[in-house]
């Protein structure tokens, strides 16, 4: 049997794998969300997770429910969207941005920063705080996007659970924070509500890196722990999109375990911090 090129490397030796392929095709055709080039092992785990929750015995049965009821599809989107994030996650990364990137960004009169795949926004607010402390927030337009409409809405509120605030405070300090972290929020028993001024220049919007085009031309893109859920081909496609969205000399920040190595885009960037995965776009 000769498979289409895009499917050559997939394993269709089990019925389950065939069902999964069909489900992803069906979701794309019906709803326009394209998970076909997501990391298959990851998608399979999440789909099985949803099967248990919906009490169905096979992926085909789940497909039936998803195709005929949009609510079930929306649950699939939530299942496949990973929203594990924290404020000042990997403080050394923020420290490096402060030391290696912001001094250069300061030379521009006006800045645009894009958080692509920002989930519930913890890192967006972290960036806003850092920009404020470096005197840059007022002249920066921040775009915060994600494909999951629920989390974008949540991100726009700037309200987080108080449960992790101690950890965030430690992160903030390790990240080179200059003030008292509690100055940036009001807390009650359950929640912390971040200062409204932080989000004055943030636009929250739905954007899908897989199916949507260039979002804006920006000075910096922060896209951390997003590419790990894609297969190599899709990673390359998305990296092309990110490259197009950056001005020459603009910065790209990826997750700690992500890299441009093996990608076609590698030669188009200069490495700023190899460990913290910060890159600078070269001239064409």
């Amino acid at each position: 049997m000769k498979l289409p090129v895009a499917m050559e490397h997939r394993d269709f030796s089990t019925i389950e794998n065939i069902e999964l392929e069909l489900l992803l095709q069906a979701v794309f055709l019906q709803y326009g969300y394209d998970f076909r080039n997501y990391s298959r092992a990851h998608v399979k785990r999440r789909v099985k997770h949803q099967m248990v929750q919906e009490g169905v015995k096979s992926i085909s049965e789940l497909q039936d429910k998803i195709l005929h009821d949009r609510n079930n599809f929306e649950r699939l989107v939530r299942t496949l969207s990973i929203n594990v994030t924290e404020m000042f996650r990997n403080p050394e990364f923020y420290r490096s941005v402060r030391e290696n990137v912001l001094p250069i960004l300061k030379t521009y009169p006006y800045l645009k920063i894009w958080h692509a795949g920002c989930a519930s926004g913890e890192e967006v607010y972290s960036f806003a705080i850092m920009l404020k402390e470096e005197g840059l927030l007022e002249r920066t337009q921040i775009y915060a996007t994600d494909f999951n409409p629920d989390v974008i809405q949540q991100a726009g509120k700037g309200i987080f659970s108080i449960r992790n605030i101690k950890e965030y405070t430690t992160n903030y300090q390790k990240a080179g924070g200059k003030e008292s972290f509690s100055d940036y929020y009001h807390a009650n028993d359950e929640l912390v509500i971040f200062d409204k001024n932080l989000k004055k220049n943030i636009v929250f919007a739905e954007h899908n890196l897989v199916t949507d085009g260039v979002f804006a031309e920006v000075n910096m893109i922060v896209c951390r722990n997003v590419l790990i859920y894609f297969n190599r081909n899709l990673q390359n496609e998305v990296l092309k999109l990110l490259h197009k969205s950056l001005i020459t000399g603009g910065f790209l920040a990826l997750g700690t375990k992500e890299s441009l190595m093996f990608s076609d885009e590698e030669k188009k960037y200069k490495t700023v911090d190899a460990k913290q995965k910060i890159f600078k776009k070269k001239h064409d």
């Binding site: 990391s39 092992a41 990851h42 785990r45 999440r46 990973i82 594990v84 722990n225 790990i228 859920y229 190599r232 375990k257």
Partner: peptide, 8 residues
């Protein structure tokens, strides 16, 4: 190949 994930 090997994938990494930050899911819960």
């Amino acid at each position: 190949t090997l994938s990494l994930s930050m899911e819960e």
